[in-house]
């Protein structure tokens, strides 16, 4: 297949082959509208949620127990979101520390994704400029192929694997309220929007394949179990194992074609 990095016959992932003629993915998301809500969460108990969890989602919680992947949050953004953030002044500690990769979901189509390593430890400012992934955390909406929200999934590859307790207070105690809020704000912005539909369907596919590839769970208070889990988890992510297969590539291609009616 042409949409893979190719080394002889070995396929890598859906990374594009450089220098092929390509067309950029259409940018249809209205990021200004997406960002136009008050995304601050309270715990419902008179304190901000980060006071309930020591800012778990924004800090390098696992520290040097992670050897291969970043302990700091790495925030993926579509090119259109990254450009929007820059156009409103950027976000110090986030938009100034990015890498990007280009993918080719179908032949001739280019999707650039930025990965921002966040060093703010919860203090990104202005906080309302935090990336979409942070705004919807701890959940992202699971949508059907038409863009209707069907449910929610944990918005972090690692947090999907907690056995008992997710350190995120909102995920544990306030899930219904948070999900209702995300649904109300986002549903009108998703429906009929090809780029948004592709984004959320692709994220859904990525998480689904991650779950298939890793059959372990983690009890973060159990040091031995946690270390073993982190080692398996980060190797799979670092090696991109869940996503280096034909089935994944076909699914992503079909999500792209469905979203953009191709």
């Amino acid at each position: 297949m042409k949409n893979l990095v190719q080394l002889g016959d070995s396929s890598c992932c859906w990374q594009k082959v450089l220098n092929d003629p390509v067309t950029e993915m259409k940018k249809t998301i209205n990021w200004s509208a997406v960002y136009s809500w008050d995304p601050k969460y309270s715990s419902g108990e008179g304190v901000a949620c980060y006071e309930k969890c020591d800012g778990y989602c924004c800090t390098p919680f696992f520290g040097d127990e992670l050897k291969l992947i970043n302990a700091e949050p790495v925030l993926p953004m579509l090119e259109s979101e990254y450009e929007y953030l820059l156009s409103i002044g950027g976000l110090a500690g986030v938009t100034d520390n990015v890498k990007s990769e280009v993918y080719e979901p179908v032949e001739g189509a280019e999707v650039r994704v930025y990965y921002a390593k966040c060093s703010c430890r919860g203090l990104c400012s202005p906080h309302e400029f935090r990336p979409f992934i942070c705004q919807v955390y701890p959940f992202f909406p699971l949508i059907d192929a038409e863009g209707e929200i069907e449910g929610f999934e944990i918005a972090s590859l690692l947090d999907m694997f907690h056995k008992n307790e997710n350190p995120c207070y909102l995920a544990e105690k306030k899930s219904i309220k948070v999900q209702e809020r995300v649904r109300k704000h986002l549903q009108p912005l998703i429906r009929g929007n090809p780029e948004m539909i592709f984004l959320l369907r692709a994220v859904r596919t990525i998480t689904e394949f991650m779950k298939r590839a890793l059959k372990e769970t983690v009890e973060i208070r159990n040091t031995k179990n946690r270390r073993k889990f982190l080692s398996s988890f980060e190797r799979k992510v670092f090696m991109r194992e869940p996503w280096r297969n034909e089935e994944f590539l076909k699914r992503i291609a079909s999500e792209y074609m469905n979203a953009f009616n191709e």
């Binding site: 990095v5 080394l7 002889g8 070995s10 890598c12 291969l68 090696m239 991109r240």
Partner: peptide, 14 residues
């Protein structure tokens, strides 16, 4: 990084 490492593994395998 992750991408170069995967490419290296694939190159050796190939």
């Amino acid at each position: 990084d992750s991408l170069k490492f995967v490419k290296l593994v694939l190159l050796i395998e190939d």
